[in-house]
Every structure is written in C-alpha cells, then in structure tokens.
Amino acid sequence: MRWILLAAIAALGLIGCANLERSRDLANPNVRPEVTAAQVCSNCHGLDGNSVSPIFPRLAGQQESYIVAQLENFRSHQRSDPAGYEYMWGISRSLTDAQIKGLAEYFGRQTAGKNAAVAGGSLDAGRKIFEQGVPEKETAPCMACHGANAEGLGAFPRLAGQHQDYLVKQLHVFQETEGRPGTPMKQITHLLTNEDMVNVAAYLQAFPGQ
C-alpha cells in the first residue's frame, strides 16, 4: 500500500510539473511576465500594482524604465536598502532581461488608484516642498524631475499616490546610506529634516487628483 501511495504522489507530481500559465517559478525563463506578476508580485504589490501594505511600494502606473532599472539593480545587488535586499534580491535573482521588461510593462500600464488617508504630516508644507523645493537646504522642487503631476518621467519614478511610509524610509536611505547609488537624491535630501520628509511624503500619498 505504501508503494501505491508513493505512486499516487508521483503521479500528482507529474501532473503538476508543467503549469507555465500558473507558475510561481522564478528561475524559469519560459514563464510569462504577466504570470509572474499575478502569481508572485501580486502577493505584495497587488494584482493591479496598488499595494495595500505601506511596506511595499505601489507600482501601478510606474515608469517602465524606472522599474527596469530597479529590478536590474536588485538583481545585481547595486540597490541594497533593507527592504530591497530582504525581499527583492531573491525575487529578482534569476529573472531574465525580457521578463524584467515584461514586468515593467505590465505594472506601467496599470491604473494608479487612490491611496488611503494620510495619518500624519502637513499637506500644505509638503506641497510647498514639492512645488518650490527648499532653497535654503539646496533641495530642488520634486516636480522639476518627477513632473507637475508627480507622474514621473523615464528614470524618475512616479510618486503620486505612493505610500507615505515607503517614501519617508527611501528618503532616509538616500540621505543616510549608499544603498541606492546613481541618483541625484543624496544631494537633494542631504539637509532635509525628518519633518520635511514626512510632510512631502504625506502630500505625495494624498496627491490631488488621485
């Protein structure tokens, strides 16, 4: 009887071997990006890229070239902020260039939804930083690179509707670490206070028109 049981398990295994349209295999280059997005990425980022938990950034409507750059940087370990290496080094380690491009296209074409109400921070102060910067702290206005609607442009990510907590943590990463090299953000953030960060992140999460 034991052999019958083992044979049944083996048979089940064979049945389950090839399931490319519902695979969660991250090392199989034949799995379509749309399948990986649904079966794996959606667990944290949401099927439509509008993540619920602020641990995970919203990807809906994100700039494709920005997503590609981040996934490549995770894969090469150039991006080493804690949230990045704890979660994304493993996810990205065996993705092919084509899969990365496909994932970027998938999330780029999703529609960004309205985020939850902001819990703290001054929206007015945040709007001022976004639109005018903080000249005395050598901080350029966010909208200069990220667009008047915070929609991003190419390598500059979309910020509108992004989680406040995620943005604050990333601003600290830029300011205090070398975890995200190759961007002008270290210079831009180096004199910002935590209060500045909380305010501008609050404004971005609640971005008007979202």
């Binding site: 969660r24 991250l26 090392a27 667990n43 938990s53 380690r93």
Partner: peptide, 27 residues
Amino acid sequence: SCHAGGQFPELTAYGRKFKLTGYTMGE
C-alpha cells in the same frame, strides 16, 4: 518576509500566501 518580525511560527500575509500556494514560489 514570511515570518512576522522573523519569529516563528507566526506568518505574515505574504508568508501565508507562500504556504497556501504549496511552498512553490521561488526556485
């Protein structure tokens, strides 16, 4: 990622999905 605060055995929402999908995610 899967265990709340890295402790065992409590699972995060993501960890629950990992288990529910049969420990099949990854390589």
